[in-house]
Design a binder for these strands. Structure first.
Length: 465
RNA sequence: GGCGGCUUAGCCAAGUGGUAAGGCAGAGGUCUGCAAAACCUCUAUUCUCCGGUUCGAAUCCGGAAGCCGCCUCCA
């Protein structure tokens, strides 16, 4: 089956055809580094990671860009309040962001451009928009003129006339010609304190939307394949990006727009005021395994609202334990298996896995195929074991699946000498049929997060997840 | 007020006209010193509710209820 995605622009499933054969250029909306990102943010980054990994699985060469928004109202407000520079303030949240990406085993993009390091590119673009008649000065600021871009609203499928009653209107934006125009460049005010750039546009700072247009085009070209973000970004952020970019170049900006749904927590909207607001750090601090968080975030289709629950997190823990145990079972399996049976099990699993993922990253049937594969191979192992070549074929298949899932082949910490001694003591006690002592040591180790399993090939240990 | 999404077992979640995938949890069995892992068996006559279309509906149509969004710098 051909790979297809739901394109927000057309609201249709479309076969994915990159602009340049075999190469995918994609821009994934990244964090505003004003605080620790929460699990809702990480749902987006996990979705983008699955997208990236599956494109790599399909043998595309991928260039992914993820922006770091390190200047906006909040970062300016908080850094000024703390009396430190904007860059010192945002640095710690950038560091946290990358720490959490690693914890969730999210692959690194090729580029992480920061807004503050691309002011010249933005200035060039704004000048171009002024020349093209798509922008105007008002006071010390510059705004995009929506009326210059007739296609405005085509991504969100909204008519500007309908955006009215009930909607918030920012009262201090009286300088704009019409309410829907948006800032490209914001003239300096007292509130900005030391945060400003002296440019040909004047003293000030960029608006929010312009960074994504300027940085995506710098690293990916004026026309690229995929642009992603949360559904909340469809309007106005991505709508504005299209207007700015196409207003600058006169050409189509992005072919395929993909947006992930939000998550809720225990059936309620996640909010600090609800007391159900979680960061990765919060959950890890409560003893939850980060890979279980990853599993929860990725196991629901990206366009489906995800209900994040602690019970679900526990279930995820059990699921990834099963997958990791499967890897161990395969590694330790020896025997004389029916190669035809193994191969047909592999073929069926690969077909099922790809059918799901090809269908707009519909991961649930893909996971079902993986778990069927696990059960069927375990069943073969239980009956006949695995021949060396079958074992290699099964491991290769698992590794392929996991190149997308990112759960099984992850680094494990080794055990220290003290634990090693305890394990040996238990083996000795068991040999001497001192089962009371053996069980005591096994219980102690479990408290330290080490699970012992007695198998035909000796005692094995693993970490509790 | 405008626009959009969702509702399937105790929990999570596929399935979009042909008689309910998968995971977790639960029950029984095999194996084991006991466990663990693994395997085998079982676990939704039914898909929020009410109508309709159809030989046939979780799937299509109409209506209701509940939940979650977007509507100018929130993933």
């Amino acid at each position: 089956m051909a790979l297809r995605f739901l394109n927000t622009l057309t609201r249709k499933l479309e076969n994915f055809e990159p602009i340049e054969q075999g190469i995918v250029r994609m821009y994934t909306c990244g964090p505003t580094v004003y605080g620790p990102a929460h699990i809702g943010n990480f749902r987006a980054y996990t979705f983008e990671d699955i997208l990236r990994r599956y494109l790599l699985y399909k043998k595309y060469h991928v260039t992914q860009v993820m922006n770091l928004t390190d200047i906006d109202d909040k970062t300016i407000r908080d850094s000024n309040a703390a009396g430190i520079s904007l860059s010192d303030h945002t640095r710690k949240f950038k560091d946290m962001f990358f720490r959490d990406l690693d914890r969730l085993n999210i692959q690194r993009a090729e580029h992480y451009p920061a807004a503050t390091e691309h002011i010249p590119e933005m200035v060039v673009m704004i000048n171009k928009l002024l020349e093209n008649g798509c922008a105007y000065r008002s006071g010390h600021s510059i705004y995009f003129k929506i009326s210059s871009f007739p296609k405005y609203g085509s991504l969100s499928h909204m008519k500007m006339e309908d955006l009215m009653a009930g909607a918030r209107v920012d009262s201090d934006e009286y300088e704009k010609e019409t309410a829907s125009d948006f800032a490209l460049w914001k003239g300096w005010t007292d509130k900005d304190g030391p945060v400003f750039w002296e440019t040909s546009l004047g003293k000030g700072r960029p608006g929010w939307h312009i960074e994504c247009s300027a940085m995506s085009m710098k690293y990916l070209g004026e026309h690229f394949d995929i642009h992603t973000g949360g559904v909340d970004n469809i309007f106005p952020h991505h709508e504005n990006e299209i207007a700015q970019s196409e207003g600058t170049t006169g050409e189509k900006f992005v072919n395929c727009w993909m947006h992930n749904a939000h998550l809720i927590v225990e059936g309620r909207k996640m909010a600090k005021s609800e007391g159900n607001y979680f960061t990765v750090e919060d959950l890890v601090g409560q003893g939850h395994n980060p890979l279980a968080i990853r599993y929860v975030l990725m196991a629901t289709h990206y366009r489906q609202q995800l209900n994040f629950t602690i019970e679900g997190l526990e279930g995820a823990k059990a699921a990834i334990t099963r997958l990791k145990d499967f890897k161990t079972n395969v590694e330790n399996a020896h025997g004389d298996s029916d190669t035809n049976a193994v191969r047909s099990t592999i073929d069926k699993a690969v077909t099922g896995f790809e059918a799901g993922m090809d269908d707009d990253l519909n991961i649930s049937p893909s996971l079902a195929a993986v778990f069927d594969f696990v059960r069927e191979i375990n069943s073969i192992i239980a009956k006949t074991g695995l021949s060396e070549s079958d074992r290699t074929a099964v491991m290769d298949t698992l590794r392929r699946f996991d190149s997308v899932l990112g759960i099984v082949f992850t680094a494990e910490r080794d055990i220290d000498s003290e634990i090693e001694t305890l394990i040996q003591n238990r083996i000795d006690a068991k040999k001497n049929k001192d089962y009371k002592k053996a069980d005591q040591i096994r219980a102690d180790l479990l408290n330290r997060g080490i699970i012992l399993e007695d198998t035909p090939s000796g005692t094995k240990w693993k970490r509790k997840i």
